[in-house]
Design a protein around this nucleic acid. Sequence first.
DNA 1: TTTCTCCGTAAGTCATGACTTACATATGGA
DNA 2: TCCATATGTAAGTCATGACTTACGGAGAAA
Lengths: 101, 101
Amino acid sequence: MTYGEKFEALAAPIRLAVFERLRQGPASVGALADGLPVSRPAVSQHLKVLKQAGLVAETRQGVKRIYRLDTEGLAALRDYFDRFWDDALGAYKRSLEARDA
Amino acid sequence: MTYGEKFEALAAPIRLAVFERLRQGPASVGALADGLPVSRPAVSQHLKVLKQAGLVAETRQGVKRIYRLDTEGLAALRDYFDRFWDDALGAYKRSLEARDA
DNA sequence: TTTCTCCGTAAGTCATGACTTACATATGGA
DNA sequence: TCCATATGTAAGTCATGACTTACGGAGAAA
């Protein structure tokens, strides 16, 4: 559930594609595998990584398993880069002041 | 300069550490290598990846090369997750409406 | 209970990438 | 010019991870 785990999860192209697909709404494993150039077990393995990173969540619906985005993990990433942006601007401002001094 | 490239860049622990270090302000390659458990050439290679992903920028200062965050790439990531968040909420809302219908 | 669907896991293969040492290049000063 | 500093690049090694096929398990319907 660390940031490094989240970035590692999004680094693999197939996993990023799954992530983007779930942006449109929940989907089953089979539905995700259709439209992707890898086997269904591969998608299963990717979903496991995404879940462990806190980016997706699982809901059982009969014999199917519906995956959806994990809003908590998503909010964590959004907040991370919001804060990062503020810090970067602050550091830039300080570096300018140090240069003038 | 794609999002995939940026996530791949941040996926390696050492590169994420460099990224976090530059959050505090610019630094030379040697300064970055000090405090990291890898050799200086390794840091150089990591900086090359980060630069190609649009996350850091380079400024030559005498014989040194000062690396700093690339505000454009940073803003792109921040905006990406802002939009992603909005889309995810919208998709969630639609999925609830579809369930009720 | 049998059967079908849907999915996760195990085991093995293969490519990729993160690291090292050695070498090349460029800047600044004596 | 000659040397020292700071960094990038080349080449090679080794671990990791992304993929495959084969198999196992659990729920729904006959």
